[in-house]
């Protein structure tokens, strides 16, 4: 085991931000599934397995893409600078450990923490789907795991972006504020503006069908939001369902199908993750730890 992994893992599981995010996700899941069940009871419809899976995928994606993404960016943005401030990094690096091994241990620990947050969201989602009448099948479990891997990759991109912030901004508090501003502007406001432009263009071209709008939105997201892993994930998971507007009546295509049909979006997540990690690691290897 790489030294520092255990320490970092323990440390991150003890942070307030981790438990606040987990708590918020838990709290928000309960009313959403309760409302869904009430709706189903009122309409007298029974949920099909395919619909259950569609709901599960959209629930996990929606919840994690917001909460776990914030956690990922915050963990990354304070990963190095806070340790320099506390002096613990100087202690660790005065021991016979290579810098690369140290940062690799940190990275693995962060990835595991995020995976735990994702699995929490997944388990709660599965319980929610069972609660509303869906059933647990082998395909569902397999697809959920695949989705978790995809989401983990996107979250790792945000951690890596956080590492970059952490190596450039010396003060952990400033880095935290900067990361939140990035999250808000780059990953929330800009995607909304791009979405708005897509709607505007659809109206202008008099293509009013939902399919056309979806296609234009997909095109805009791929082109203008390539740096936003959350938007890319949303594009990919849209293709999981045959009918995004009404998942209860839609067919289910599966995660593998969605990834295969959106390889450009998947590639965007992948190459940026590798790039951020490479630059973040390089910066750490070359930086003065003072």
């Amino acid at each position: 085991m790489i030294w520092g992994f255990r320490l970092e893992f323990k440390q991150n599981l003890r942070t307030k931000k981790f438990w606040v995010i987990i708590g918020l996700m838990g709290i928000l899941y309960i009313p959403s599934f309760y409302l869904m069940k009430s709706f189903l009871l009122q309409s007298g419809e029974k949920i099909t397995n395919e619909a259950a899976m569609n709901m599960l995928i959209s629930s996990i994606t929606g919840m994690t893409s917001f909460f776990v993404a914030i956690l990922a960016l915050l963990i990354g943005a304070t990963a190095i600078n806070s340790e320099i401030e506390k002096g613990t990094l100087r202690i660790a690096m005065s021991k016979p450990i290579k810098r690369l091994h140290y940062i690799a241990g940190k990275f693995l620990a962060h990835s595991l923490v995020l995976l735990i947050a994702l699995l929490f969201s997944t388990v709660v989602s599965i319980l929610g789907v069972l609660y509303i009448g869906g059933s647990l099948t082998g395909r569902l479990v397999g697809d959920v795991l695949l989705l978790n891997m995809l989401l983990l990759l996107a979250m790792i991109q945000l951690v890596a972006l956080g590492y970059l912030i952490s190596t450039f901004i010396k003060s952990a508090t400033t880095a935290l504020g900067f990361a939140l501003a990035v999250m808000f502007i780059v990953f929330m406001i800009v995607p909304s503006m791009v979405g708005f432009l897509a709607i505007k263009d659809t109206i202008n071209s008099q293509n009013t069908s939902m399919e056309e709008l979806q296609q234009i939105q997909k095109y805009y997201t791929t082109k203008y939001l390539f740096y936003d892993p959350i938007s890319q994930i949303k594009v990919i998971t849209q293709d999981v369902s045959t009918n995004v507007q009404n998942p209860l009546k839609a067919g289910y295509r599966g995660i593998a199908y969605a990834i295969k049909h959106n390889m450009v979006n998947f590639a965007h997540i992948l190459w940026l993750t590798v790039l951020y990690l490479a630059v973040g690691f390089y910066r750490f290897l070359r930086m003065d730890l003072r």
Binding site: Q11, R14, G87, T88, R90, I91, S94
Partner: peptide, 13 residues
């Protein structure tokens, strides 16, 4: 080599 840094805290937990 043993090193004791200035102004350092250790892992509080």
């Amino acid at each position: 080599v043993g090193y004791m840094p200035e102004h350092a805290t250790l892992w509080d937990f």
